[in-house]
Amino acid sequence: MSDEVLLDRRPDGVALLTLNDPVRRNPLSDRHVLDALVARLREVEQDGAVRVLVITGVGPVFSAGGNVKDMRAKAGMFAGPAVEIAEAYLSGVQQIPQIMQRLDIPTIAAVNGPAMGAGCDLSLMCDMRLASGTALFGEVFVNLGIISGDGGGWFLVRHLGYQRACEISFRGRPVDAAEALRLGLVLDVVPKEELLPRTLALAGEIAAKPAPAIRMTKRLLRMAERTHLQDFLSAAAAMQATAHGSAEHDAALDAALAPRVRAP
């Protein structure tokens, strides 16, 4: 497994996935890096002990996205005729949004610096984002005469709405941390040294909740984007019936109804 993508399973049920190639600014187009990232995400998907996933980068950059030098040289995933390039996207980087969308555990991006191109898209694939003051979110594909080939536009519209997604994408305009907070693209902006501890604390808080309820809540919130109300209510009724019969529900009720110890 590539050392450029690390996975740390913590005892509190939080998995920390780290892009670990700071010298090259954590690129996301080399095939061995993409294969490693996909493999790590599949590990998380298949590990029932993982309750929350946090994604971050090492160094001053979250991820610079695609390797521009490879693009210019028509190398790697950018080599060959159009049909081969399309296949490289389908079998490579596009596996990432598909897995991220399938995950029914909460996902949080700790955006430690610029997240450009595919790096921005990776952060958008997460359910929530916290950012350092140096973070930039760059849907800058048009500046290179290309488009977001990994589904970033799909996520951007859902986070910001169609009009703002158009403005940012058409202009190829990076959004700094302060604007990202105003737009609701991030939950909070924190000093860089506090970013990972704060993100892990949030992840740990969520991981401590009853896991089946968190998974079902995420499924319902995802359904809300694409489901008619009646279908949504039917799904909610079925999930709620399952939740009422769970051991986690019983334990939570016992804790809520336990006599409180009064201070002397």
Rank of each mutant, 00 (worst) to 15 (best):
L90I: 08
V190K: 04
T107V: 04
I206N: 02
I206G: 01
V157H: 07
A207F: 04
L253V: 15
Y89W: 12
G133N: 10
V33N: 04
G76Q: 08
L229G: 01
L7W: 04
M71R: 13
Q230P: 00
S169R: 13
C166L: 14
M216L: 13
A177G: 05
A258P: 06
W154E: 12
D47R: 07
E248F: 06
H244G: 07
L130I: 11
V58T: 14
L183K: 04
T107A: 05
E205N: 07
G172N: 08
N112T: 14
E87D: 14
L34C: 04
N112C: 15
P174V: 05
A86G: 05
P11Q: 07
V14G: 01
D254H: 09
L53P: 01
V93Y: 03
A15T: 03
Q94E: 13
S123P: 06
L124G: 05
P114C: 10
R31C: 00
M100E: 11
L19Y: 09
V189W: 00
D30F: 12
D47G: 05
V142P: 13
L17H: 08
L16K: 02
P212N: 11
P106M: 10
D121P: 00
H244C: 09
R219V: 07
V54M: 08
I105C: 10
L103M: 07
P174R: 07
A252D: 12
V68P: 00
G80M: 11
H228V: 10
A180C: 04
A208E: 02
A236E: 11
E194M: 13
A252N: 10
N67Y: 00
H249N: 12
G145R: 13
V54C: 05
S29H: 11
Q163Y: 12
E205S: 11
V33L: 12
A207I: 05
A251W: 03
I146K: 13
L6S: 08
A238C: 03
A224M: 11
R24F: 04
G65P: 06
P197T: 04
N26R: 10
D254N: 08
V54Q: 03
Q98S: 08
C120M: 11
I105Q: 11
G161W: 09
L53E: 04
L37P: 09
A165K: 12
I147L: 14
V54P: 02
L221Q: 12
N26S: 09
S234C: 04
R72G: 03
L183S: 03
T199Y: 01
E43W: 01
N143K: 15
F62D: 06
L185Q: 05
H228C: 02
T242P: 00
A49M: 02
R42T: 06
V142H: 14
R129Q: 13
A255K: 14
P11I: 02
N112D: 09
R9E: 13
L181W: 03
A110K: 01
M1Q: 07
P191L: 11
L90R: 15
I108T: 06
G184R: 09
E205Q: 14
S63H: 09
V5Y: 02
S132M: 07
E45M: 08
L181M: 05
R72Y: 11
A109I: 00
E167A: 13
A115M: 07
V189R: 01
I55Q: 03
L19W: 06
R10P: 03
A109N: 03
V50Q: 01
N26T: 07
A237E: 13
N20Q: 08
F137N: 08
A213M: 12
I85R: 15
